[in-house]
């Protein structure tokens, strides 16, 4: 190891300590991400991080790579333009459940459908943290949020199943308890060609756990440990996060399918032949 992760050049060290609350899982996920990037061997200037808005959206501000903190829900769209224009770089979208699946839900399904070559890390803490703990599409049923004071009565997304249905070619779910598996999974995703989606379940001690009297962050980590069942390579059927059921984690999907860029180039070559000039952006 050339440099400990604490002092990794992949972090903007001068900005530490970061803004996340004690026991927040976003920091654990970032810790794993930094390790995965180091293991992947991708040069620092060939990785770009794009975030949306929210607690997890602040990740872009702490990674010492070209990093873009965009608008609420639209990180995927910015990342699409960036990824297509820097085909020799890895573009990572790093954001939260509210940003990616509520306000960004339409972009999420379409970016997955197009199989744009990028890695999406979705830290799911079941709430909007930055704005004070409101309900999101992933808040479990009956749980309280500041905007569901009587408990959440809506159905929730099963994100891995949603992503599989949309055509994502790498789909995983881990928790911040599963640090070793998460590092491995992120490293695989970084090397995967196509749209990768990794859901990372994470405690929000301040705004989700406290309101629902779920104890301290360690209690949720214990839950993650006790309830989780690892199921790799078996698709996303039966992975919903229903109360009482096993918490299914794993690398669910890993398939190779032509990316957006490859589909575009294949079609244009078929139709235009030598008249086709591929879009190379900037190399």
């Amino acid at each position: 190891m050339n440099q400990p992760v604490l002092l990794s050049p992949l972090l903007r060290q001068e900005r530490m300590p970061h803004i996340w609350c004690p026991g927040c899982g976003v920091g654990v996920s970032l810790n794993c991400f930094v390790r995965a990037v180091e293991k992947s061997g991708i040069p620092q200037d060939r990785i770009h991080v794009v975030s949306g808005i929210g607690c997890t959206g602040r990740v872009a501000g702490y990674v010492n790579v070209d990093s873009f903190h965009t608008t609420h829900g639209r990180a995927l769209c910015f990342a699409t333009g960036l990824a297509l224009s820097r085909p020799d770089s890895r573009v990572v979208v790093y954001s939260g459940d509210g940003d990616l699946t509520a306000i960004g839900g339409n972009h999420l399904i379409h970016t997955a459908r197009r199989n744009v070559d990028m890695v999406v890390i979705c830290v799911n803490n079941f709430t909007y943290g930055m704005t004070g703990g409101q309900v999101t599409p992933t808040t479990p049923e009956n749980m309280k949020a500041s905007t569901t004071p009587y408990g959440n009565f809506e159905y929730t997304f099963n994100l891995p199943a949603l992503m599989e249905a949309c055509g994502a070619t790498f789909v995983s779910r881990w928790t911040v308890f599963h640090v070793r598996q998460l590092i491995r999974s992120l490293e695989k995703a970084l090397k995967h060609r196509g749209f990768s989606f990794i859901e990372v379940l994470s405690p929000c001690p301040t705004l989700y756990m406290r309101r629902n009297r779920l104890g301290n962050p360690l209690n949720m980590m214990e839950q993650f440990k006790e309830r989780s069942v690892i199921r790799n390579g078996e698709g996303t059927a039966g992975t919903s996060l229903e109360e009482g059921a096993d918490l299914i984690v794993g690398d669910f999907i890993e398939v190779r399918r032509a990316t957006f860029k490859e589909c575009y180039e294949r079609r244009m070559t078929e139709v235009l032949g030598e008249r086709f000039v591929p879009y190379e952006g900037v190399r």
Binding site: V50, F78, L82, R86, N106, G281
Partner: peptide
């Protein structure tokens, strides 16, 4: 793109790539 929200920022990603 899927809508004008995405269309109006997608190209900005390309701009920051130098295009």
């Amino acid at each position: 793109m899927e809508d004008e929200l995405s269309a109006s920022i997608c190209f900005q990603g390309a701009v920051w790539a130098g295009v």
